[in-house]
């Protein structure tokens, strides 16, 4: 059987990080709806593995991941690679200052999954726009 080669250019791979499986699944569906391929991660270890594979086109990151963990290390890694991401959070006030300083558009929870995904698309397009063609 030949390996199926999926081109990240033709099929953008979207990393979704959230410690809540139901939210993750909802976002996965919404990503498939727009013809992209979701890469789901319940924690930063899984998320970083996807990032290191180098195929992430854009990302939706939940900020607080339980147990005091935040998405900071993933956001940094994405920023270092120039991969656009948005922050999906239920706690804008308490959001970690370190994470806030990284930038990244904020989407408050609860927001319908389709809106979260379209916001991510806009952010991804904007980050690409200023580059010379």
């Amino acid at each position: 059987m030949n390996p199926v080669i999926v081109s990240p250019v033709l099929h953008p791979h979207i990393l979704v990080l959230d410690d809540e499986p139901m939210i993750l699944l909802d976002l996965e569906f919404a990503i498939e709806d727009i013809g992209c391929i979701p890469l789901a991660a319940l924690n930063t270890t899984q998320a970083l593995r996807h990032v290191e594979n180098g195929c992430v086109t854009a990302a939706i990151l939940d900020v607080s991941l339980g147990g005091g963990q935040t998405c900071e290390c993933v956001a940094r890694e994405l920023a270092a690679r120039g991969v656009p991401y948005i922050l999906h959070t239920g706690d804008l006030d308490r959001m970690d200052e370190a994470v806030r300083q990284l930038g990244g558009k904020l989407v408050p929870k609860p927001t319908p999954a389709s809106v979260v995904v379209s916001t991510m698309l806009e952010a991804a397009q904007q980050s690409r726009a200023p580059e010379p063609q």
Partner: peptide, 24 residues
Amino acid sequence: ARELSHRMKNMFSVIGGIVNITGR
């Protein structure tokens, strides 16, 4: 109050997920 707020927002997000997925 903040913690409660955070959990409540998360819960509304989860409820949204359940409704969407059931609808699908």
